[in-house]
Design a protein around this nucleic acid. Structure first.
Lengths: 171, 171
DNA sequence: TCATTTTTTTAACCTAGGTTAACGATTAGT
DNA sequence: ACTAATCGTTAACCTAGGTTAAAAAAATGA
């Protein structure tokens, strides 16, 4: 069994309107989501309500809170920036199936490996690059991002304020 | 087959003296390492030679460059801060074995999942916390770290200079 | 189209942390 | 125990980015 078979068997399709949350920081949510259509942001809020954007999600991407999957609560919130369609896959089913299915287990290894690589890349950027370098990097990897995402959101993703991003662009 | 069996079958034990590198940024190195004894740092150097520390490694931890495993070069270097003994496991063997061994494949899923959680936590800290908060966090999770790691290295791990860390401590 | 809301820019001022350099304090090697 | 090297601290000065607020620009909706 591969990931597509698994999705056919256990996945349910869900529609969300722009500006609705798929889940909120603090929720229990043991699902894996695959984006079919739309754009989302995954973000943290601190105690003062300040927002920090973990990542943007586009069709083909997948997401879950690893904290929540491993018997915890979501460490972040997930919000639709546009009308969105996604597939919701119960993680319990994924693990149960993988426990008895060699092909699927190896597909999940691939998936986790590529997730790990992405997280490691983000860690690198946050640790080693200046805000300006992170911005250049983002543009290089995603030249038309500003058509899809507001500058406000881009700034929060880079770890700076919208004011600071405006300054960087001005140069 | 579980991870320990795999280590017995394909792992080789290696000793390194303090201040020697296990691998260098830019190397090809398709091995997974398990730390038996010692302390190490994983770090990036930028074009000007400035150093940024990804993580410290202690007995029981494991490490590899995910970039290098996936037919690339190491994105960081690995250096022993103390005399070190570690087990070197060829990643090719791990994948070949997992491809035909359900138990092992699921053990690797566990391993990758816990790796992903760690990277996600680090991403959170770098994105959302100030240097001072990151320092407090580190002390909470590892109260005796300054007996094991110099302040210079701690600062580079936090993403600040040793001078800045000295200032933070002074408060 | 007009009105409202949201986004982006600009400016003034502030703060955390960087840089350089000098000086003690430790540590390691002989 | 002595020397050399490394490490930690302090100070002076600098810079990237934060904060607040107001104005301009753009998007949204009736």
């Amino acid at each position: 069994m591969n990931l597509n078979d698994l999705i056919k068997q256990f996945g349910t399709s869900q529609n969300y309107q722009k500006n609705t949350n798929v889940f909120l920081q603090g929720d229990e949510d043991q699902y894996l989501y695959v984006i079919q259509e739309g754009v989302l942001k995954a973000y943290y809020n601190d105690v003062e309500g300040k927002e920090y954007i973990k990542s943007f999600l586009f069709p083909g991407d997948n997401i879950a809170s690893t904290q929540a999957l491993n018997r915890g609560r979501c460490s972040f919130s997930l919000l639709c920036l546009k009308d969105t369609r996604l597939i919701k896959l119960p993680y319990q089913k994924v693990r149960e199936t993988a426990a008895n299915d060699l092909e699927l287990a190896n597909a999940i290894i691939e998936l986790l490996m590529s997730f790990a690589m992405k997280k490691e890349q983000r860690e690198f950027e946050l640790l080693c690059l200046s805000a300006e370098q992170r911005y250049q990097n983002l543009l290089k990897g995603f030249p038309n991002i500003s058509q899809q995402i507001t500058q406000n959101n881009i700034a929060r993703y880079l770890g700076i304020t919208p004011v600071a991003l405006s300054r960087i662009k001005h140069k």
